[in-house]
């Protein structure tokens, strides 16, 4: 029995050290050169929202995520790596996207990501590919007409990890902010009266309000939210390639085609399009 025990110990120690070695071998995914890896594997992963109409929404019919961000990510990838590259669309939320990029779960983000000075310390941004602005959505007939009405005692619903939450803290410091995991949950919470208003980018809110005529966007936009594609720090070569690809698809009309496909029938979106 003593010998068996010793054998068992040996077995477990070997297993444990094997794991440790594996851990040590692990190359930090986020710091591998994206251009080299994608050229080798012919596969690139983009983080895209899956609950945001127009930008990235999971289709009930196909189970695939569809939207402006998906098409931009696909067009940029094909421009850089050729038509046969496989584009994986990984659903992300406002709260998870930056961590997923930094930890290497995805190669890049096309997820309604506002370019901000704070985020610039963490990621590289492409040039602006869409201009959104923050707005408020309320139930029709609400007393709240603009961000000024978010006084003490009002509750505002926002998305965890979104820039709009940071903005509304500054614009309406008195209001209580409830942060929900994603846009679908946030809208459901607004409908249940958990908050008096919901704040996010106009681009996201228009998509939600299109679902339900009881809700409207009030007070116009009160911030500028330029969207950029997010790339990990240190990926300068990939960053350059992405910017170049964006310029190419803007020049050859692909960008305009994608814009027309998603925003052609929606009023008030001309301002968002990058000329």
């Amino acid at each position: 029995m003593q010998r068996k025990k010793k054998k068992l110990i040996a077995l477990w120690l070997t297993l444990a050290s094997l794991l440790l070695v594996l851990a040590g071998c692990g190359d930090d995914l986020a710091s591998q050169d994206v251009l080299t890896r994608v050229k080798a594997s012919n596969e690139i992963s983009w983080g895209v929202k899956s609950d945001t109409r127009l930008f990235g929404l999971m289709s009930i019919k196909t189970g695939k995520v569809e939207g402006f961000d998906v098409d931009i990510a696909t067009a940029v990838s094909k421009e850089i790596f050729g038509d046969q590259v496989q584009v994986n669309i990984v659903p992300v939320t406002s709260n998870t996207r930056m961590s997923l990029l930094k930890n290497g779960n995805v190669d890049a983000l096309a997820s309604t990501l506002t370019i901000t000075p704070e985020r610039k310390k963490e990621v590289l941004f492409s040039e602006v590919y869409f201009n959104a602005g923050q707005a408020l959505m309320v139930k029709k007939g609400s007393q709240i007409k603009s961000v000024k009405d978010l006084t003490k005692g009002t509750k505002v619903i926002g998305l965890q990890g979104s820039n709009s939450v940071e903005n509304v803290k500054k614009a309406a410091p008195e209001a209580k902010i409830l942060q929900l995991p994603d846009a679908a949950q946030a809208f459901a919470a607004l409908k249940s009266g958990q908050g008096d208003a919901m704040t996010s980018d106009n681009a996201i809110l228009y998509g939600l309000a299109a679902d339900d005529s009881d809700y409207e966007i009030v007070g116009g936009t009160f911030t500028k939210e330029p969207y950029g594609l997010g790339i990990n720090l240190g990926q300068e070569k990939f960053h350059q390639a992405v910017d170049q690809a964006l310029q190419t698809i803007e020049a050859d009309g692909t960008y305009a085609k994608i814009v027309k496909k998603w925003f052609g029938k929606i009023d008030g979106f001309d301002g968002g399009v990058v000329k």
Binding site: N95, M98, K102, N103, Q160, L178, Q179, Q185
Partner: peptide, 23 residues
């Protein structure tokens, strides 16, 4: 409660993660 904006420990953890990115 983190799913319900319940301000519990896990909710706070998620907010800290999204501001610091130190998962």
């Amino acid at each position: 409660l983190a799913f319900l904006a319940g301000f519990d420990l896990m909710y706070q953890a998620n907010l800290i993660v999204s501001s610091t990115l130190k998962t």
